[in-house]
């Protein structure tokens, strides 16, 4: 890689603290689908080339809606998006209605053991724009591998996991928890690299609900 580019990238890394303020950290090229979330994240969107963990209390709380604007933009730009071993069938009529291009959307069917391997391969290859995975029993080591692979291939990585996993630490650059109370779904930022986590849950109404 060109050294000038590398240095530029280093200086814009949100983890670097510089004595004098040098303006805002680099904006993420991938804003999420939720304005409140974008405002809370230091880069204003999904951390590029890193693993994002989304912990779900249950299915059907708007987990696709979080990603769909990003995925739609990526697929419309002609870049492949891969879903590795999804727990249900991604349903095309709804996804296409939200702008996802079917021609750029790929599904990998795999056993749990192979799913982690497949996800890592997709991330490391650098050929996909985003990789979605549902690692069921991923330990810290497996997640670290995914995070490293996402960095190597500069690919967006999303891992959906059950909310129980929030108790364990994770190497992911961003951790979100999605659950619901009486008023509807709540989105909490558990960890975000290079910024402070907002103390309160963020208001969230999944786009597909409206």
């Amino acid at each position: 890689m060109d050294p000038a580019v590398a240095l530029d990238g280093v200086l814009r890394d949100p983890r670097i603290w510089r004595g004098r303020a040098q303006g805002a950290p680099a904006r993420s090229p991938h804003p999420s689908g939720v304005d409140a979330l974008d405002a809370a994240l230091p880069q204003g969107g999904w951390p590029a080339a890193a693993l994002t963990e989304i912990l779900l209390a249950a299915d059907g709380l708007g987990e696709w809606s979080l990603l769909l604007p990003t995925l739609a933009a990526l697929t419309q730009a002609g870049r492949p998006v891969v879903a590795v071993a999804p727990p249900y069938l991604p349903y095309l009529p709804a996804l296409q209605a939200r702008g996802l291009r079917a021609a750029q959307f790929h599904v990998v069917e795999a056993q749990p053991v192979d799913a982690l391997w497949a996800m890592e391969q997709c991330l490391r290859a650098g050929a996909c724009a985003a990789v979605l995975g549902w690692p069921l029993r991923a330990d810290d080591r497996a997640l670290r591998r995914l995070q490293l692979a996402a960095e190597t291939g500069s690919t967006l990585a999303f891992a959906f996991r059950p909310l129980d996993a929030a108790r364990n630490p994770s190497p992911a650059a961003l951790r979100l928890a999605l659950d619901a109370d009486r008023h509807g779904p709540r989105l909490r930022v558990l960890k975000c690299r290079g910024g402070t986590t907002p103390p309160r849950a963020l208001p969230y109404v999944p786009a597909v609900w409206t």
Binding site: A102, F105, E109, W117, A118, Q121
Partner: peptide
């Protein structure tokens, strides 16, 4: 690479 390890039809796309 994915097809070689996971099977010919493991990698697919969805068509309406």
């Amino acid at each position: 690479r994915l097809r070689a390890r996971l099977g010919e039809d493991a990698l697919h796309q969805l068509a309406p």
